[in-house]
């Protein structure tokens, strides 16, 4: 795995590094002999710069949900079935009985 990705993974999964102070970062970064620009981006928490240095897209579309009413197959199975067109509307009396 790429050394920078390895480092990010370590920062993400190691509890002792999860909220490491910037002043402590060199103890983790120095042994990896990373490019100085990469080190700078990590120091400055500049993810846009880091993305550029890794030659990757920083701006990504992360919306994967449509806004409109779900298609019929997405609806919950326990929705009440629609009444046939000729079913009379419930009388006010019936509604009061239910309440």
């Amino acid at each position: 795995m790429n050394k920078v990705l390895q480092l990010l993974q370590r920062l993400g999964e190691d509890a002792s590094l999860r909220n490491i102070a910037t002043s402590q970062l060199p103890t983790v970064l120095n042994p990896l002999n990373l490019d100085s620009a990469v080190q700078q981006a990590i120091f400055e928490k500049d993810d846009a710069m880091l993305a550029r240095l890794l030659d990757t897209t920083n701006k990504i579309v992360c919306m994967i949900f449509p806004a409109e009413e779900p298609a019929p197959q997405d609806q919950p199975a326990d929705l009440p079935a629609k009444q046939p067109a000729d079913t009379p509307e419930p009388a006010e009396y019936d509604i009061k009985q239910v309440v």
């Binding site: 795995m1 990705l5 990010l8 993305a51 890794l54 990757t56 897209t57 920083n58 990504i60």
Partner: peptide
């Protein structure tokens, strides 16, 4: 995923 770096991480 939500950013290119994470995408690269999964790619490996």
């Amino acid at each position: 995923v939500a950013d290119g770096i994470t995408e690269q991480w999964v790619s490996q």
